[in-house]
Amino acid sequence: MPKPYTPKVITANALLEGDVIYLAADDRWVRALKDAEIFTDEAVAQVRLLDAQSRAAEAVGVYLADMEPTKDGPRPVHFREEFRAKGPSNHVHGKQEHA
């Protein structure tokens, strides 16, 4: 049995602000993880990744991050993605400021 594919989102840092961004289904870069498009098909994810990586004037370091789909949107599998989605734990800075 092949290993089931872990669902993913496409993420990067915004070129100008450095802020964590996610690719939405309508091709916009969004700031909140809940608005990200989640991929359950590896082939689709790879094609979308290639397209996203070509948008070099908008995003830096584009990659696929493992997620668990929930009714509230994608939930990070790894704690690093949790921190990226939220911001630092010592100051209410980054995304938490606007949440």
Partner: peptide
């Protein structure tokens, strides 16, 4: 990237 690093500018987890 090598140009910004030569000038002390990193891209970190949430920001530059």
């Amino acid at each position: 990237k090598p140009l910004r690093l030569m000038n002390g500018l990193y891209l970190q987890l949430h920001a530059y």
